Amino acid sequence: MHTEFDTNFSVEAVSLTPTRSWPAMMGLSTMAEYLDMSPNSVKKLVAMKELPQPVLDLSPRLRRWSKVQIDEQIASPAQAQKLAPRMEDIIKLNATKRGV
């Protein structure tokens, strides 16, 4: 039995440019998506002052954060060091609440 394999193939280049443009002002769910976190984790980090406070806070349903402030805060090396352990605390807290 003889099997032939097609050895002629090509690899397409992968684009590393973002596929989504993020708004200058973000609501909680957009900010959570931007940071790849749950909205509850974002709320906790904002309450702990590890993430910036909203620049517009008219009601619980109308809060907006500045993308520039978010980027500046998470880009800071000192903040990155502080944020990682805090995320571990949040994960442990969430696991404790679930009884894990």
Results as ranks from 00 to 15, higher is better:
residue 2 H to L: 12
residue 2 H to N: 10
residue 3 T to D: 12
residue 4 E to H: 09
residue 5 F to E: 15
residue 5 F to A: 15
residue 5 F to D: 15
residue 6 D to W: 00
residue 8 N to K: 08
residue 10 S to T: 13
residue 15 S to F: 05
residue 16 L to N: 11
residue 16 L to P: 01
residue 18 P to T: 06
residue 19 T to A: 10
residue 19 T to F: 02
residue 21 S to T: 11
residue 25 M to D: 14
residue 25 M to E: 15
residue 31 M to A: 11
residue 32 A to G: 04
residue 33 E to T: 11
residue 34 Y to P: 06
residue 36 D to M: 02
residue 39 P to N: 05
residue 39 P to I: 04
residue 40 N to K: 03
residue 40 N to R: 06
residue 42 V to P: 01
residue 43 K to V: 04
residue 43 K to Y: 02
residue 44 K to D: 11
residue 44 K to M: 10
residue 44 K to T: 13
residue 46 V to I: 11
residue 47 A to H: 07
residue 47 A to Y: 04
residue 50 E to H: 12
residue 51 L to M: 03
residue 54 P to T: 06
residue 54 P to C: 03
residue 57 D to W: 00
residue 58 L to G: 04
residue 60 P to E: 14
residue 60 P to A: 09
residue 61 R to C: 04
residue 62 L to P: 01
residue 63 R to F: 00
residue 65 W to Q: 14
residue 66 S to M: 07
residue 67 K to M: 12
residue 72 E to N: 14
residue 73 Q to T: 08
residue 73 Q to M: 13
residue 76 S to F: 02
residue 78 A to W: 07
residue 79 Q to A: 11
residue 81 Q to G: 01
residue 81 Q to T: 06
residue 82 K to G: 03
residue 82 K to D: 07
residue 85 P to L: 10
residue 86 R to S: 14
residue 86 R to H: 06
residue 90 I to S: 06
residue 90 I to G: 05
residue 90 I to N: 07
residue 91 I to S: 11
residue 93 L to E: 15
residue 93 L to M: 10
residue 94 N to T: 08
residue 96 T to A: 14
residue 96 T to F: 00
residue 100 V to P: 01
